[in-house]
Design a protein around this nucleic acid. Sequence first.
RNA 1: GGCGUCAUAGCCAAGUGGUAAGGCAAGGGUCUGCAAAACCCUCAUCCCCAGUCCGAAUCUGGGUGACGCCUCCA
Length: 469
Amino acid sequence: MQIYNTLSRKKEEFVPITPGEAHIYACGPTVYNYIHIGNARPICVFDVLRRYLESRGCKVTFVQNFTDIDDKIIRRANEEKSDYLTVSNKYIKEYKTDAAGLNVRPATVHPRATENIDEILSIISTLVEKGYAYPVPSGDVYFRTLKDKEYGKLSHQPIDDLQSGARIAVGEQKENPLDFALWKGSKPGEPSWDSPWGKGRPGWHIECSAMARRFLGKTIDIHCGGQDLIFPHHENEIAQSECCNGVPFSHYWMHNGYININNKKMSKSLGNFFTVREVAEKYGYEPIRYLMISSHYRAPINYSVEIIEQCRAALDRLYHCRDNLRFLMEHAPSGEKPGEEEIRTRMGGYEEKFNAFMDDDLNTADALSVLFDFAKDINTNLNADTEPSKELCGFALEHFMKLADVLGLLYVEKEDDTQDEEIEKLIAERTAARKAKNWAEADRIRDELKARHVVLEDTPQGVKWKISE
RNA sequence: GGCGUCAUAGCCAAGUGGUAAGGCAAGGGUCUGCAAAACCCUCAUCCCCAGUCCGAAUCUGGGUGACGCCUCCA
């Protein structure tokens, strides 16, 4: 497949280090709050990347970290009069709830920064030994940016321009404004770990270098994250890892675009964000995932209520297709009929089209259109009038759901069958009323069920019902 | 200032040289006791200007507008 590589600014054929395997590192959240829908984008998009590679037979090792120690977590802990561990544990739990709601598979490993201090110290020590890093009296250790001749290669910034924008904050003892902290000497009341340079805690960038190396090796296949991480976070990761290990850090760098509100980037610092949780409570989780899939991952997405409702409506169409097909299959006769072979062949072909789009730098928008084309084909050719065989229905359903699953869609199943019996009873009463042409009573029962969010459909094979939102 | 992205119908969104995918919404129709769902039909010449070409939404140049990174951020 082709992947747009931020490093080369070109689409490149994806060639993994080990054929048939992919080692992917995704920058995870700093756990000091609920995630917002801007955070949800890389989570969903790179979950699709992983699902797609796996669907093509690739063995994926997917590592996503939790940054569980940093200034914001400490601040939050102080505000809540608790400690960093309580805060990070809480929001990791909430993250997992949201990720599961979005049908994002847990990573192969979810390492936490504070559980990888040894690896972090090991890298910093090597960098100090090689002269790429230096400790200062305050207990901080900085990366000597100017010594890295390749610094800036990811963000494609001339080093002079980067330098002119950088500032040395009050109290910092850097040699150069561009130098960044690998280790921060502890301040009173802050959580700290022992190090050769005194008590302190890791800088943000070094965590990812350490966790990537420990769980994926010195050179990985793909590193991904939001575009706002290109500089300085990913640039710094490259600098640390490559100066320490002497080999390329990651062959491919993938960066997703932002979620905007009124064309402005959604971010916690601007305060113009919606949490995944609050949107999910109103519209469900799946429309959020659909939104992420509906456009190309590098393009910006403007979020609004109108758009999320459109996503809900589009999903309804796909769900109807799935549910109609399931209902039909239950009532279909066994034994392939003449002419079904042709339909089977055609329907088997959608996967190839789907894959062709996905191969083009994860063109999920076009891949999704294949799913809709497939749905129309199913609706037109597999219905109560055409009376397809159980085998053909099963074939179509399996292939349709396979594609949906690569995108991570159509994962919601009817739950709560405690009231099924009562619903079935009412439906039977309505059927009897209809038979007696007592339309008023039939409609009354239908309205009653509707009030309980049960929507009916009369079909030649009987009454079909489902719970609506 | 440096680097970069984007501009396609009422809304969302693909397409990046050969005559505009898909979804939502809307209108008309078929089916239905009525519905629902489904199906059929209708619904754009691609921000502006100038070029290149037999041919451009797609390439080049120039505008206009929006946005991002260069500081914590997915």
